[in-house]
Each structure stands twice: as C-alpha cells, then as structure tokens.
C-alpha cells in the first residue's frame, strides 16, 4: 500500500464554529480550539470527505489535489 498523502485545508475566515466537522468525523481527526476545528490526528484521515460535504460554510477541503 502506498503512503497516504492526504491534506486538509481549513479556511479559518469562513468557519462559523458550528462544530459539525469535529463531532461527526468518523476517525476523530479534529480537535476543538475555541470551537474551531484543529487537525489533531491527520494520519487517521481516510479521505472520506464527510467533513467537507457537511461543512455549511465551505470552509474545509480534504484531498491531495487543489489545495493551496
């Protein structure tokens, strides 16, 4: 198996601290810092993108591509 190279980008300006990404990540990738998500366990990420799809404010991008 090849090494996973998943990147997660969080747009802090767009985030409204609803906490959905933190609460519903199946792998508990996120921790909370004053309500904002912080990545605490990147190696557990399976690239399922549920956090990105459930973010009401389009503040998360998950994946290796198109991340600046």
């Amino acid at each position: 198996m090849t090494q996973k190279n998943i990147k997660i980008y969080i747009d802090e300006k767009a985030c409204k601290k609803c906490g959905l990404c933190i609460a519903f990540c199946p792998k508990k990738v996120y921790g909370s810092e004053g309500g904002k998500p912080v990545i605490v366990n990147l190696s557990a990420c399976t690239d399922c993108k549920l956090c990105e799809l459930r973010c009401p404010d389009y503040a998360i991008i998950v994946g290796g591509e198109n991340i600046e």
Binding site: K16, G19, Y58, N66
Partner: peptide, 27 residues
C-alpha cells in the same frame, strides 16, 4: 472552497448570512 466549485458561486456574496450550523449551506 474547492477550486472547481468556485465558478458556481457568486464569491463576492460569500460568506453567506445563514446561522452557524444551518443546514441550508450543506444543501
């Protein structure tokens, strides 16, 4: 926001005014 989706939004109107956690943004 993902680059390939940006063309579908009026980016000058974002962020939207919906409350934190409102599902409208998800839909």
């Amino acid at each position: 926001m993902r680059k390939e989706l940006q063309k579908y939004f009026r980016n000058d109107k974002l962020p939207h005014i919906w409350c934190p956690g409102c599902g409208h943004g998800i839909i």
